[in-house]
Every structure is written in structure tokens, then in C-alpha cells.
Write a protein that binds this DNA or RNA. Sequence first.
DNA 1: CGATAGACTGCAAACGATTGCAGAAACGCT
DNA 2: AGCGTTTCTGCAATCGTTTGCAGTCTATCG
Lengths: 365, 365
Amino acid sequence: MSVTLKDVAQAARVSVSTASRALTGTGLTSERTQQRLVRIARELGYRPNPIARGLKTGQSRLVALLVHNLTNASFQVMAEVVQARLKALGYQMLLCIGGDDPQAESDTLTTLVDHRIDGLIVVPTGKNGAQLETLSKNVPIVCLVRRDDATDLETVLADDPQGAYLGTRHLIELGHKRIGLIVGRQDTTSGRERLSGYARALREAGIARDDTLIHAGHYVPETGATCARKLLDLPRPPSAIFVANHEATLGVLRVTAERNIAIPDDLSLLCYEDMPWFEWHRPAISIVDNGARDLANLAVDRLLHRMDAKGNSKGNGSDGAREYRVGARLIQRDSCRQIDASAPAKSGKSKPSSSKSSAAKSVKV
Amino acid sequence: MSVTLKDVAQAARVSVSTASRALTGTGLTSERTQQRLVRIARELGYRPNPIARGLKTGQSRLVALLVHNLTNASFQVMAEVVQARLKALGYQMLLCIGGDDPQAESDTLTTLVDHRIDGLIVVPTGKNGAQLETLSKNVPIVCLVRRDDATDLETVLADDPQGAYLGTRHLIELGHKRIGLIVGRQDTTSGRERLSGYARALREAGIARDDTLIHAGHYVPETGATCARKLLDLPRPPSAIFVANHEATLGVLRVTAERNIAIPDDLSLLCYEDMPWFEWHRPAISIVDNGARDLANLAVDRLLHRMDAKGNSKGNGSDGAREYRVGARLIQRDSCRQIDASAPAKSGKSKPSSSKSSAAKSVKV
DNA sequence: CGATAGACTGCAAACGATTGCAGAAACGCT
DNA sequence: AGCGTTTCTGCAATCGTTTGCAGTCTATCG
């Protein structure tokens, strides 16, 4: 069907071995034949067959990204970033969607390894630690966003404690004393870490922690709505709500709309993770950006590093840090307002629309 | 490294050929050895190497999906659907993101074919018709969402004329006479088709078309905002706006918020394509659903059909329809309201939240 | 009992590349 | 001229499968 190395070799009246060496550019052929073969190959439209090559070399030029879904905005940008970076390096991305289901994850993993992927970036469910650990002996693996505690795989994480701290402190600085928190389940790392950041900020400010202001649940709109109602029905409702997830934000917004609660005048709202429409919403929603783009880039960096390491001197692999954290940053928009007798700012709209305060980035731990 | 067919054969004291035949289940081995080999293979944890197999058979069990981006909600669900369907059939999905850039598309296509993909679903830019046409001789291709007019490839399209018609008619039935339209560029099929559906509905209702109510532009929020301003600044502004794209909707919503225009009381809003948050927005936004999920499913069906056809009796390929359209449907939520002296409904909220009126599905043309 | 068909099985050649090894050519040196 | 290097080239094996062909074995029938 298509042009093979043999065809090129024949046309140039050399052996396939010579052709191979000339085209792959090992310096083992004379300058002249080298160039001649390159020319002929181009003329014939020769394209090396990655499958055949892969069989011999054990590599596939395929790198897999395994995420939970694509509705999550963070995963979208991660997928886009990973794909773009890899393509530039001549790799193709296999995108797999595991739905946060351990069984699906496990199946997918074995299939991927069958396909001899050269590397894997995975958002682990946390239930297949043993399997991941085993696979990592054959294939470079980097975990993203979540850590699988059963492994000591290299992991790239958002700095959730820092992000939550930053957000909470911002609200405190605006004069808020009663800050509601809607956070993820406490059996997930991110849920715990975000809560701890919130708690730290309160502590530092000398504000007593009030557990009636803290609600944990799944990252879905319904949770947001339920928790928002509970918070607003409190005898002394909060003056600000920090929603530690963008899905839940939907629910909160619905409730405030239903009850005609004006943001930011009646209630300040701060959200974790960005969404494209947050900027366009009126009022534009202030957020703590978890740095999805940076996370993805760092994950790719680390993966490439391991892939090199494996190629050059197989076996060492481990070289220092196993955990990387990417700093979160606050992006102020219009959904939080100052409440203080001494500075009675009425509207948030006068603030600069997108000033950024950045935390330390890529901190080794 | 891993267990090969040879290992299995050795363990079973048969030749590799027999092992191969037994495990691939060609009925050419005795029942007994067949079962014995299956057992031994399982015990040894044998997994066939798709690369080696691919080299011999010319197949890769890889199917590619080439879309423009992942921020578009339609592409997200398509990617998820395609991935899920393929996985169930033992294929892996290569997801490529072309950014609607002809050069990137072209590069990606050649790489994909190098990798001997077994099939391709592509949202074409429209500039690489010749290349697609050539490739389609080697690998089954189905176009999605857009048609590449330079080819006669099988194509799965949304029924945009129908969708736009349905939406416009709905607004007319609610009593609207001046209906603003914010639509895509007129050099794209979808832009033209949506406009034509709008026009047809007006014509049928005997409403004169007013070109000051029609604005075309890129599918981005800025366009929505600009066009919305122009529409609202009109001496006789429209009582309803039909936004033919979800990105542009963001811009429209911002403008209405800025100007304190209440939806649906002051202005009805209908949008093309769904977004997860439309349901949660207050008021929940009524839409014309373009059926992304159905489109993706149909595309997969068609692709599989062609892949079979190629496997069984190569060469025929063409069998009837080359264009499939998936019906759009109206999903009524709360952003459109009746305006009529005889039926002075004040609020849309009393309506059933999600009644559906479905158009013909999957119509051959 | 011998021939013959039928059912299994194994040998070996592919698929398209890469790569160790050894032979050939070219060159410089004494 | 002879010899050792260096540089280039080709042969052939290899990666892990599939598959055409030919061979072996058993069973069946005349």
C-alpha cells in the first residue's frame, strides 16, 4: 500500500539497513548517501511506519491522559494543554475518560499498557494503587490533581491549603467575620485541604471557627443549593460564602437568585476554580484559580523528564521530589465586597477587574 | 518483559501457530487444546501485543476523533460519547484538537494515518478536502457537524435549518413579532442554515423580515455583547432575541444584566445549543438542543458500519445516503415569555420546566 | 486391511522497521 | 607494497503476531 523502507532502499540501490541508518540519522552513513536517501525518501513520500518501529523499539509515541470527565473545566484545559505539548514533541495523546470509577480505571490502565504507551498522566481514583505501582515499573507515570496514597508515584497537585487560605484571607480582609464554607467531602484530600486552609486563615485572624458555617458534600450543583439554603437560613447568616468548587457554585447562584439576594451587596461570593462564564456573569465572579494550566504543564514536564530518564539510563528514575504543588492565586472580580463601617464601599464594580495576587509556584515539599 | 504467545505455546507444549489459532478463536483447533490454551494463557497472564498484531494485520484498534477544541460543550459531550462507545468495542480513542486551523488539521491527519488508525471522525475545517478525500481511500472517515464541500464523505450534521425554524416558531407562537437574531458568520454552513430556518419561520408566519434585527459574527462572547447592544439600541428594539450559539449567549446576558433588563419580563431569550449551567441559571435558559449526543452516536454508528464494510468486502463502501441529519429539539425553560394582550402571562416561571418537542430524528436527505 | 478424507497441528514466511556483527573499501603510514 | 585504522555498508536476526501450506494422525468406508 504505502511506501516502505524497502522501496526507498531499492530506489537508491542500497540495503534497507543503510536506508534505515541514513533516515534515522545515526551518524553511521556517509554524508553523501545520507542526503541522497533523504531526498529519495521525500520524493517517494516515504513515511516510517510507527507500528513496525514500535514493535522493534518497544515504543509507541503514544502518551495517555486519564481523567474523570470533560465537563469539568479544569480537565478540559488540562487535556488541551497536554495534547498541545505532546503534539509539538511528536507524540499523540490517548485521552481516556474514567468517570472516577475504579473498575473503569483499572480496565483502561491494562489496555493502555497493552498498547505500549510511552507515558501516562493520570488523575487517580485512589483505588488502584497497587496496579499503578506495578505499571510504573514499565511505564513512566505521573499523577495529577489527586494523590494515590497507596503509591509513591510522582504527583502534581494544586496547592489547595494555600488556595483556600488565600481566598478566606481575602474575605477577611474585606471585613467579613462570618464566612460560610461549602467544601468537598472530607474523605478526599482536596476536601480536607481546602477546609484546613480556611481554618488557618480564620485562626490567624483570630476569628473563632463556627462549624454551623461549614458544609461538606459532593461537588455537584445540588449540594451547593442545599448548603446555601442551610447557610442562609441560619439565625445569623454569613456575610460571605466561599464555595470550594465551581459545580456547587451553580447551586448557590440559583438559591441567591430565587431569594433575590444581591451579590455582592447582600452577600459576597468567592469560588474555587475558574469557569469561562464566570467572567461574563453579572456580577463577574471572583475566584481562587487552582492553576489548571500550570498543573498540566508541570505534569507534562515531569513526565517528559521521567521518559528521558528511562531512555537514557534505565532504572534510576527516582531523583528527589515526589510531590509538586502549583500555587493558587486569587483573581478578584466583582462578587466580593468590603463590609466595614469605616470603609462603606457599596459596589464591588469599581474595583480593578482582574488584579492578581500570586502564591509561590511549584513548591517542592 | 511481558508474557508472549511463545511463552504460552511453550507452557502448553504446542507451536505458536496453534496457540495463536486457539486464542484468536478461529475454529481451527480442537475443542480440547483450545480450552487448554485459554486456561494457560489466563494463568500466565498473557495479553496479546496489539503492536505486533497490528503490524501483521494492518490494524491498530485506534480510532481518532478530531475536533476544534474542548471548551465547546458540544465537543465535550461528543468526545465523551465517542470514547465510551469505542471503549466498549475494544477500541481506544485518539483525541486530537485542531483549533479549527487548516495547517494543524493537515499535519494531524497525516500523523494519524501514519499510526494506521482504523477509523476517523472529524470536524473538518473545510480547507483540506483533497487530503481527506485521498485518505478516505485507506481509512474509513466520517465528517461531523460540518461538511467539507470539496469531498463527498459521509457526513453527520445537525439539522440547523430545522432547529432554527423550531426556535423561531416557538417565539412567534409566544406572540413575538420583532425577534432579534444573533447568528454565526455567513461563510459557514451552520451560520447560513440557522439564518434560513429563522427566515422560513418568519415567512410562514407572515412576518416581514427586518434585516436590522439580524446580526452575524464569530461564535464568541464579545460578538454576543456587541450585537445585543446594537439590537437593544434600536428605535424599536426586539421583544425577543434568538442567539444561535452558546458562546455568544454569555455576551448577551452580560449586556442585559448591565442594563437591568429583566428576562423574560422585558426580553425573551432563546439560545442554540445547551450548556450545563443553563438549567441552573435564573431564569433557566430555554434552548434549541442541537442533539450533540445523538450526532456523536450516529457518527459512531456510521463509522463502525464503514469499518465493517471495509473488513468484509473491501471496495464497495458507498451504500446510499452520504448525509445524515439529526433532529434538533426545543427545550423550554424560563427565559421566554408570552407577550399578547389576550394572554398576559406575566412570568415564565409557572411553565413546566422542561417539556420537549422533538423534531424528526436522523432523516436521510 | 488399505485407501482416503477430514481434522488438527507445525513449519516457516511474512508484516516493516532496527541493530549487532562482520566484511569491504578507503586511507594513511612505515 | 604491506598493514592497521577508520569509515561505511550489507547480511541476517529480531520484535510478537498471523497465516498459507504441508504434514501427521485418526476415523471411516469400501
